[in-house]
Amino acid sequence: MIEYKNVTFRHKSGTVALKEINLKIGEGELLAIVGTNGAGKTTLIRHLNGLLKPSSGNVYVFGIDTKKATVSTLSKRVGMVFQNSDHQLFSNTVEEEITFGLKNFGYDYVKAKERAETMMRFFGLTALKDRAPLTLSGGEKKRVCMAAVLAWEPEVLVLDEPTVGQDFINKKKLYQAIVETNAAGRTVIIVTHDVEFIWPLQPRILVMSSGRIVRDGRASDIFVDEGLLRSANLIMPQLAEISNRIGMAPAALDINQLLEVKDNWLRI
């Protein structure tokens, strides 16, 4: 459904940000992209809605060559929540921000308003609906962006560092939104450093370094590989590390799985 064929991307300055990327992402996949700052993660996902076009090679989204499509056609199907919310927000109020995309993509006024209200309730934004998005806190802005994109249910949801600045409650809601979106058969792609957050989701993981994909595999394999994690500036999720240290495989996804077998490892 999404395919990168020999994609190289060179910035105007000449810096090569992506090097010969070959990648296929299937419909309904849950994918997390990890790697150091500057590894090319954000550059990679910006090719998905045509914001960036390959210097050489091609990106196909639903069979459409992104070089031949406009950002607006792709954006309807590929919803993207940027790392920096300020690049995304432009409306006068939170409510307008959320209804904007909906109206643009053909929802009538009443339906758009209804849908926006549901999203605002879910993300705890109802009380802020008349506020100017750019005056909100970082965490609130991020939730507005998230609500605005999730509102029109794009077939592919791309989240760039969604947990930054989010507290426990909002991370849980975000987690729930990801699970539900993915369960509905839609593709979710997350760029993140937050290994604790993605560990229980057990996504397919791409590890990027210096513009290349250096590993592509399951979370259960990648997050227990110490050398690989170190090379990508990651640390092992706590549950994976505890499991590893007590010799439990496959690693526990929650503490209950550790507690169930505690007689095997706890010597008090």
């Binding site: 790697g35 150091t36 700052n37 930054v164 600045g165 450093h193 937050d194 290994v195 994690l229 170190r230 990508a232 500036n233 990651l234 640390i235």
Partner: peptide
């Protein structure tokens, strides 16, 4: 919040 985990640690 903007650092990769190992750098953060």
């Amino acid at each position: 919040s903007l650092l990769d985990p190992l750098t953060a640690k």
